[in-house]
Amino acid sequence: MKLDVRIHGRGGQGVVTAAELLSVAAFDQGLHAQALPSFGSERTGAPVTASCRISDRPIRSHDPVSHPDLVMVQDLTLLRDPAVLAGLPDDGTVLVNTRRDLADLARGGLVMGPAQHWVTVPANDLSRELLGRPLPNTALIGAVVGITGLLEPEAVAGSIRRRFAGLGEHVADANVRLAELAYDLVATQTRGSGTHA
Rank of each mutant, 00 (worst) to 15 (best):
A165G: 05
L185I: 12
P122G: 12
G12S: 10
S61P: 04
P122K: 08
L110V: 15
D28F: 05
A123E: 07
G149S: 10
T190Y: 08
R107S: 15
E42R: 14
M72G: 08
T148R: 03
L76Y: 02
G92K: 04
T148H: 03
L185W: 03
Q189T: 15
F164K: 01
S159Q: 12
Q34G: 04
T195G: 02
G87P: 01
Q116G: 12
R177K: 09
L131C: 03
V73I: 13
G14E: 07
G109T: 13
V144L: 04
M1V: 14
A179M: 07
G92T: 08
E180F: 09
S23C: 13
P153I: 08
N175V: 09
R53D: 08
R43V: 15
G166H: 12
G192R: 07
V84K: 05
T190G: 14
A50E: 06
G92E: 06
A35K: 11
V65G: 02
V94S: 03
S159F: 11
S193Y: 03
G45N: 04
L130V: 08
T190P: 07
R128S: 00
V5A: 12
A106E: 12
L130Q: 06
L21D: 11
V73H: 06
R161C: 06
A86C: 00
A172F: 08
G14F: 03
I141L: 12
P153T: 05
D28H: 09
S159D: 12
V24N: 02
H62E: 15
G12Y: 03
H196W: 14
D56L: 15
G11T: 08
T188Q: 05
H32D: 13
Q29H: 00
V15A: 08
D63S: 11
D4T: 01
H32A: 14
L181F: 09
P136L: 11
R100L: 15
T120E: 03
A197Y: 10
T98G: 02
V71N: 03
N137A: 05
P37F: 07
E129Q: 12
V111C: 14
E20F: 02
P136K: 10
D28R: 14
E169R: 10
D101Q: 13
G158A: 06
N97W: 02
I160C: 05
D75G: 01
L22P: 11
T93D: 01
R177C: 04
D91F: 00
D28A: 14
T138M: 01
A187V: 15
G30V: 11
D91S: 03
R10W: 03
R43Y: 11
L140K: 03
G142H: 09
E169P: 00
R6Y: 09
E169F: 01
A155G: 10
G108I: 14
I7Y: 01
S127I: 02
A19T: 10
L31A: 02
A106R: 13
E129R: 11
A174V: 12
S38V: 13
D56C: 13
L102D: 07
L22A: 08
E154G: 11
T93W: 01
A86D: 00
R60N: 14
A143S: 07
